[in-house]
Computed example of a mutant assay.
Amino acid sequence: MSPITVVEGRRLSLTNLDKVLYPETGTTKGEVLHYCTTTADVLLPHLHDRPVSFLRYPDGPDGQRFFTKNVPPGTPSWVKSCAVPHSRSGPARQVLLQDLASLVWAANLVVELHTPQWTCGAPGVADRLVFDLDPGEPATIVECCAAALWLRDRLAADGLAAYAKTSGSKGLHLLVAVEPTPSDCTTAYARTLAVEAGAALGGLVTHKMTRALRPGKVFIDFSQNAAAKTTATAYTLRARPAPTVSTPITWDEVADCTEPAQLTFLFDEIAGRRAHHGDLHAPLLAPEEARPVPPPEF
């Protein structure tokens, strides 16, 4: 029989707590659930009012993985959801993780958490700008850091403050709090900067999605600003060989990175980082930090 726990007055059945999800480290599902509950105070604010897409990996990263946007079958009635316009399939409903009980329910499904750059009250109107820096082998996160520093300075020239985090996979994410802006406009602006980076940094980066152009370069993916796209949320665990986390980092850490291991963080390192740094992405949650996005022709 699965153990029953009560979280904020909600009864939850938690399954297979001793199951090893990450064989490389022996990390169990129970440890994953513990991570999510003890990180909820910083994780939930970054999820608030944002429809969540799940990458599910119930048998660990080496097992079956599947991406779902719609509310999963069997979702408790008390888990909130919102209507989300889908351009091809019409309106759908997606989960909102607004409280600890909902987060624990989702963690029991074994998921990565991905969110768009807009909230459910204003679909397709971004309050964040994002750049996903993805290295093509033999490039690594070290090369991503060089591109990130250039983008940080270029954004600052337009009055925009960027905050960095590891993707939890191979690369980096840069996020900027912006005044509500149609996603088409944030995408156009991000593309402009990605093209500029390509011209300024020579052979280091590419903004083109063609995979044949990516080896040895950093792909600056500006397309995640599109209304239909999502990005891994800060503090989410990833479906990687080890339990890595999409971790907010300092700009000093970016500038000092000379080896990929320097910016690889496992779930059991996050509490210590939080104790030292707090939530490095807290400014993204402050409305007064938002700045206007320059028009695409800027």
Rank of each mutant, 00 (worst) to 15 (best):
P241A: 15
Q98A: 07
V125R: 10
K217M: 10
H277E: 05
T250I: 02
H48V: 00
L172H: 02
T115H: 01
E31P: 00
A197F: 01
G216M: 07
D18E: 14
F265Y: 15
G121I: 11
L193H: 00
L103T: 02
G171L: 12
N108R: 05
P45W: 09
P135D: 12
L193E: 00
V95T: 13
D18N: 13
D132F: 15
P292D: 09
T181Q: 08
P3Y: 08
A242N: 07
K165R: 14
L266C: 04
D268N: 14
D99N: 14
P3K: 11
P243E: 11
L284A: 05
Y57W: 15
A290N: 06
V176M: 05
G74M: 12
V104L: 02
I4P: 00
L237G: 05
D127N: 13
P135V: 07
D132G: 13
A190W: 08
I141P: 02
T15R: 15
A212P: 01
V32Q: 03
T115D: 03
P296D: 07
P243K: 05
L100D: 01
H276G: 01
C36F: 14
G203N: 11
E288L: 00
E288Q: 13
A147F: 03
D99C: 09
A148V: 02
D158I: 03
S246W: 13
L174S: 05
L109W: 10
T181M: 10
L12W: 02
W150T: 02
M1R: 09
A83G: 04
E137K: 11
T187Y: 11
G74F: 10
L201N: 07
H114V: 05
T28K: 10
D41V: 11
P58Q: 10
P296E: 05
F66L: 12
S183W: 04
R50W: 08
G121H: 12
F298C: 08
A101I: 03
G202R: 04
A122T: 15
E289M: 14
P3L: 15
T39A: 15
V218A: 09
T250Q: 03
R238C: 03
E259S: 15
C185S: 13
L129T: 03
G272P: 06
E137S: 13
L14N: 02
D62W: 14
V218K: 04
L204S: 06
Y57E: 06
L149S: 07
S2I: 02
A157I: 00
T186F: 12
H277G: 02
T119S: 11
S223M: 12
E289H: 12
L129S: 07
S53E: 11
A83I: 12
G278T: 07
V205D: 03
P23R: 08
L33V: 05
T5F: 15
R191A: 01
V71I: 12
A107P: 00
M209P: 06
L160G: 03
G30I: 00
T192C: 11
A239S: 14
V111S: 13
L12N: 01
T75D: 01
L97T: 04
T186L: 10
T231N: 07
L47C: 04
P58V: 13
A255T: 03
R11N: 01
